Computed example of a mutant assay.
Amino acid sequence: MNSENNMAVTKFGRYFEDFIIGEEILHEGSKTIFESDNNFFCLLTMNHHPVHINIDYAEQKQHKQLLVVGTLVFSLIVGITVPDISGKAIANLEYEEIKHLTPVFINDTLYAKTKILAKRESKSKIDRGIVHVETIGYNQHKQNVISFKRKVLVPKNT
């Protein structure tokens, strides 16, 4: 509680010391992907492939329905993890091994979980460290749809 106005202080992000190697975090956030989300993202990123925006075209292809753009799925899953992983970050340093595991469709709901793989103190600045995590995004059917690793530079609580 904040004693000045009796309001609860929300925890957003973690300091370097708060990350425990081997810990698995089930993120609270989730997002149902609507057709408008996919359309706006296609327009914003200039991805006009018809499998993402043309129902007639998509119905004639392998999955018989519109596919959600993979980079939208990636962006949403990263976003879902922010309160627990990079909310206090100085920088995201690296993304690696991004794997699209199964298609995502309009009206799928995405969830995420993250495992803390490793952490180390910064070699150049004593007030921060690097945390290495692996995140898996999954849908409402508990099917893993995306996985990736990333390294995040976070401050120490000093």
Rank of each mutant, 00 (worst) to 15 (best):
K119I: 10
K31R: 15
F12P: 10
S75D: 09
I90E: 00
L117T: 03
E97C: 04
G13D: 03
D56W: 08
K123A: 11
L110W: 02
K88A: 01
S86R: 00
V9G: 01
N2P: 03
N92H: 06
A91T: 11
H132T: 09
E28G: 07
Y57W: 13
N5T: 04
E97G: 08
E23M: 05
N54V: 08
I116M: 05
L101T: 03
K11N: 11
E24G: 05
E4K: 14
A91W: 11
D127F: 10
N107V: 09
Y15W: 15
F34H: 15
Q140T: 09
N157F: 14
F19T: 08
N6M: 12
T114S: 12
E17N: 15
S124W: 07
F148A: 07
V152L: 00
K115H: 03
G87H: 02
F16E: 09
D37K: 12
I126R: 07
R120E: 14
D18F: 14
L43V: 08
N54H: 14
H48S: 04
L66R: 13
L66D: 01
E59V: 04
I90M: 06
K64E: 12
F34E: 06
S122F: 10
Y95T: 06
G87C: 01
K156L: 13
V133H: 00
R128W: 07
K123D: 08
K31E: 01
E24V: 14
V154F: 14
V152C: 02
V73N: 06
T135I: 12
R150N: 05
V69M: 05
H141D: 14
D108A: 10
S122I: 06
N39D: 09
Q140I: 14
V154E: 02
K119M: 11
C42F: 05
L67R: 08
V78P: 01
A118Y: 11
V131G: 03
V82W: 00
K151Q: 11
E97F: 08
A89D: 00
K125T: 11
F41N: 10
P155L: 06
S30Q: 06
D18A: 13
V69Y: 00
T135S: 13
E35D: 10
E4S: 02
D84V: 01
L44E: 04
N2L: 06
V9W: 03
V69W: 00
F148C: 13
S122C: 13
K115L: 13
K123R: 15
L44P: 11
F16G: 12
A89M: 05
G87P: 01
G29N: 06
M1A: 07
R14L: 12
H63C: 02
N107T: 12
T109V: 08
A112I: 00
A8P: 14
D108V: 03
Q143M: 06
K113C: 04
H63D: 04
E121N: 13
A58D: 08
G79T: 08
T114G: 02
N5L: 10
D84E: 13
K113N: 05
I80R: 01
